[in-house]
Nucleic acid binder design. Structure first.
Lengths: 189, 189
DNA sequence: TGGATTTGCCTAAAGATATTAGGCAACTGC
DNA sequence: GCAGTTGCCTAATATCTTTAGGCAAATCCA
């Protein structure tokens, strides 16, 4: 009986890779056990249940996304920052579709509050420092940006914009242009 | 052995109701069989497999959403139409969270092309007739609106905007204002 | 170094879901 | 009222989740 060296950490990391390969919904405890050539029950020493695996992958994805976002924002401001940050989301979703899907997993409030989701909100606010918005408009704008980024990326991932002209990349650029214009010229109530 | 009168139609309708009650992801063939007090295998005369059930609920939701959208657009134009249409999405998601979740189910291309999703795109284009956009900007704008509506509603459904000021309703109104302004003043490339 | 303890993976088992095959009873049509 | 069709059933298999309890390998420590 050779010990493989299972770890909560390794399992979640392998789960994330599996998600990118076969889709987040196909990530199961059984599939993961197969990857490690180990019996299913063995994973339950490291994971409370399958929910913990899924949540773990979601939290990992949120961290990675936040790290990339922070790197993209460094040294940038204004529209430059806006576009760089937006591209982080889009690129991450394309590179890691399974992880991105995992990041959409609804988390219970405590888990969410302790997650990197908080950093996402802070970074979005940081971008808005390049524009002239004060509360509560800044919050409205945070919500707008979050909606557009998430909405566009998820529609694009589902193939919503493929096979029809113009290219999705073109729309993406023009939408970022329009968001920049909107933020520079945020309408009064 | 009393016959309950199962039908593909009835099953999908019951599945949609079940989705709104317990969540789309909890809608299973087994759960549905329980609802009708019938053995699981009996459903397989009416449904090819569980995928068909889920797809059926998705298509039903898309139809209902398109019908509501059409009703909302009748007799309206410009910002009025924009807001009415947007509210259809948001209200539908709140009234029928399970169905709304179902409407996000990725469909294979042929199914999607035959679905009410096509009407959604047409209606969005109809709204844009109230603004001065020509191709390809109109397509970019269609994609922007789709992203914002879907993005906002799904973030709101996941509780993203609750428990933090200002109220989500306020952000929603201001975002619709900003979209209207953006469309009236769409920036050149 | 060797024994005690902890820890990791295993076997076994039960419960839930999805799906298929084949059977009998209840409707339908005439 | 009979023949044929249809609808729901029993039975069986496969997969996934989860728990309980066991043995062996790693680790600790004298």
């Amino acid at each position: 009986m050779v010990r493989v060296g299972l770890t909560r950490e390794r399992l979640i990391r392998a789960g994330a890779e599996l998600a990118d390969e076969v889709g987040f919904d196909k990530v199961t405890v059984s599939a993961l056990a197969r990857q490690f050539d180990v019996k299913v029950a063995s994973l339950y020493s490291h994971l409370r249940n399958s929910q913990e695996l899924k949540t773990g992958i979601a939290l990992l994805a949120l961290e990675e996304l936040a790290d990339r976002g922070a790197a993209a924002l460094a040294g940038r401001a204004g529209k430059d920052a806006l576009a760089a940050f937006a591209n982080v989301y889009r690129d991450y979703a394309r590179e890691h579709p399974g992880r991105y899907a995992a990041a959409q997993l609804p988390l219970d409030p405590e888990t969410a509050a302790a997650s990197a989701g908080v950093r996402h909100a802070q970074m979005t606010r940081a971008i808005l420092r390049g524009y002239d918005l004060t509360e509560p408009d800044q919050t409205h704008a945070v919500r707008l940006l979050g909606s557009v980024f998430h909405g566009y990326v998820s529609l694009e991932m589902q193939g919503g914009f493929s096979h029809s002209a113009p290219e999705s990349q073109e729309s993406w650029s023009r939408i970022l242009d329009s968001l920049d214009a909107t933020l520079r010229n945020w309408p009064a109530p």
